[in-house]
Every structure is written in structure tokens, then in C-alpha cells.
Computed example of a mutant assay.
Amino acid sequence: MSKNDILELEQLRESFGDDPDTFIAVLEMFMIEVPNDYDDLQNKMDINDFYASGLLAHKVKSSYRMIGMEEETLLLQEIEDRAKRKEELDEIPALFEKFKAMYPEGLKLIMRTIKHLKKSK
């Protein structure tokens, strides 16, 4: 598998050592929690509730940061920052659209990483 086929998980290694079982547990929890939070974020974006969107972006951002998905983390950080400052709110929908475009492929990447970790045990 090439480097881009699975996550590298440096942040998890720094936190938990080289423990594939823990990595699998964290990634599986991500796959349970983040889609629910994503749906909530989508709903708040649909009604232009940028305050709630910022809070949800903060929550989801933490999950992406933990597994080392930097592009998603940065987009969510931008949404959170604009919502918190109540500035440049008109840019939030475009930022969310960028995140939304990356979201399905990110989930596939996580699933490939889980399968790889389970096979490697």
C-alpha cells in the first residue's frame, strides 16, 4: 500500500505508543461519532446557524486532528474561528463546502486504515 492509501497515525503513536488495537478502537469510534456530528453540522449550516456550526466544527476538528488529517482540521478551524469572531461569516458556507467535498474520501481512507491495521495484527 502506498502512503496515501492509509493514514500514518503519528499523533496516535505519540499519544499511545505503537498499539494497533488502540488505533483500531480510536478509528472505529471516529467512524461512529463523526458522521453524527457531520450530519448535525450539515443541518446547522443549512439554516445558517453559524454559532452552532462553529461549536460543532470545534468538536469535529478535534477528531480529525487526533488522527492526523490536517486539511480537514484546517478547514474546520477556519469555520470555528469565523463563527467565534462573528467575522467573515459569509465565507463559512464555502469553507464547509470544501470540507464536505473531502468528507467521503476521508471516511474511505479511515476504513482502509482500519482494514490494514486489522490485517497487520
Results as ranks from 00 to 15, higher is better:
M1T: 15
M1A: 15
N4L: 06
N4S: 14
N4R: 12
D5L: 14
L7W: 08
L7D: 12
L9D: 08
E10D: 09
E10Y: 07
Q11G: 04
L12N: 10
L12A: 06
R13M: 08
S15P: 00
S15K: 13
F16L: 05
F16E: 11
D19V: 03
P20T: 04
P20C: 08
D21N: 11
T22A: 07
T22D: 00
T22C: 08
I24G: 01
A25G: 01
A25M: 03
A25R: 05
L27H: 00
L27S: 02
L27M: 06
L27P: 01
E28H: 01
M29C: 02
M29H: 03
F30W: 05
F30D: 04
F30E: 05
M31I: 00
M31D: 09
I32E: 07
E33I: 07
V34I: 04
V34C: 08
V34Q: 08
P35Q: 12
N36E: 11
D37Y: 11
Y38N: 10
D40H: 15
Q42A: 08
Q42K: 14
Q42L: 09
N43R: 05
N43T: 03
K44S: 11
M45C: 00
D46K: 11
I47M: 08
N48P: 00
N48R: 07
D49L: 10
F50D: 03
F50L: 09
A52L: 08
S53T: 14
L55H: 08
L55F: 04
A57S: 12
K59E: 11
K59Q: 13
K59I: 03
V60I: 14
V60C: 07
V60K: 05
V60Q: 04
K61W: 02
S62I: 07
S63G: 09
R65Y: 01
R65P: 00
R65W: 00
I67V: 07
I67N: 00
I67G: 00
G68K: 01
M69Y: 00
E71V: 07
E72G: 11
E72K: 01
E72M: 11
E72A: 09
T73D: 15
L75E: 12
L75F: 15
Q77R: 07
Q77C: 09
E78I: 02
E78T: 10
E78H: 14
I79N: 12
I79V: 15
R82A: 15
R82H: 15
K84C: 13
K84D: 15
R85H: 12
K86A: 12
E88Q: 15
E88V: 06
E88K: 12
L89C: 10
D90P: 11
E91M: 05
P93C: 12
P93G: 11
P93I: 02
P93E: 14
L95E: 08
E97Y: 05
E97N: 10
K98H: 08
F99S: 02
F99R: 01
K100P: 01
Y103H: 10
Y103I: 01
K108S: 08
K108A: 04
L109E: 05
I110W: 05
T113R: 10
I114H: 04
I114Q: 01
I114L: 05
H116F: 05
L117Q: 06
L117D: 03
L117N: 06
K118C: 08
K118M: 10
S120K: 13
